[in-house]
Design a protein around this nucleic acid. Structure first.
Length: 277
DNA sequence: CCCGGAACCTGAAGGC
DNA sequence: TGCCTTCAGGTTCCGG
């Protein structure tokens, strides 16, 4: 599932391949994935446009076009953006972008949950996102303010895109393990020390995953079709039932807000850590 | 405002 | 062997 490290990997892989290229055509095989404008207008307005810059905001991939318009993509659960896929026709290819150097860019998405927008102002899509966790404006203080007076489980809030952009189920689990914090802890119960630790490990976990080119758990692939390797260094994410790498206690898996949450019941106690006082 | 749950989707996996 | 149910989870919407 593409979260921040996966989308950042897609962006970095694509920059040398598609910046400066022009769209010659677009084929929409699942028009419902286009949320703005109408699918017909989307294709008509995109053709002929030159890709000026690739950016990322949270889990959104942002293509800035020479005209000033912006093509925004979200991969949701199962989306990938593949360059010149070898296995055409691909049953899961929901949209194809034909570029002026002969390359095809295929939006592969088995579950059809991915979304695209063509807008003049990207803020209508990403305006509600919280700070970028790897940017300087994400500080222990801003995290503390986001968590103050909130009774929801910390795990749920870490996945709330309006508080912090780009963190999803996998990396929230990894960060909470690294910080030694139980995912069900009420956010407002975290100490200043715990919040500082969480802030620190969030950045570390995300940066390490980017270094590993993201995690290929199910349907995420790099644009060239290669898998990421971040899943091989996961300590708890997607590892329910397996032994904790630190203490060998079986990793538990419980639903939080309907999401499978993996943690070590020994390393991540439910009560606040005594060492913080 | 805040919290939790359903819906959108379909392939994979498990039960009988 | 094969049908059926359940699960996976990012985002949006809805109800309490």
């Amino acid at each position: 599932m593409p979260e921040l490290p996966e989308v950042e990997t897609i962006r970095r892989d694509l920059v040398p391949r598609i910046v400066g290229r022009r769209f010659l055509g677009v084929t929409l095989k699942w028009p419902k994935m286009v949320l703005n404008p109408s699918p017909e207008a989307f294709s008509r307005r995109l053709v002929g446009q030159c890709i000026k810059e690739l950016d990322r905001r949270g889990k959104y991939l942002i293509m800035r076009l020479a005209s000033g318009e912006v093509l925004v993509l979200h991969f949701r659960m199962s989306g990938s953006l593949l360059l010149a896929p070898q296995d055409e026709p691909n049953a899961y290819c929901r949209a194809v972008f034909f570029l002026d150097d002969g390359v095809q860019l295929c939006f592969r998405d088995p579950r059809k949950l991915g979304k695209m927008w063509l807008v003049e102002d990207e803020s209508v899509v990403v305006g509600g996102l919280g700070p970028e966790p790897l940017e300087p404006d994400f500080t222990p203080d801003t995290l503390a303010q986001s968590l103050a007076n909130r009774s929801a489980p910390i795990k749920a809030l870490l996945c709330d895109q309006s508080l912090l952009a780009g963190v999803g189920n996998m990396y929230a689990d990894e960060a909470l393990f690294a910080a030694g914090i139980h995912p069900l802890r009420r956010a407002s119960s975290l100490s200043t020390g715990e919040i500082a630790r969480l802030h620190n490990v969030l950045r570390r976990v995300l940066n390490e995953a980017i270094d590993s080119h993201g995690a290929t758990i199910s349907d995420y692939w790099r644009p060239d079709g290669e898998a990421g390797t971040a899943q091989f260094v996961f300590k708890v994410a997607h590892r329910g039932g397996q032994p904790c790498p630190v203490c060998a206690t079986p990793i538990e898996r419980i639903p939080i807000r309907g999401r499978g949450s993996c943690f070590c019941p020994n390393c991540q106690k439910e009560s606040p850590g005594r060492s913080d006082f």
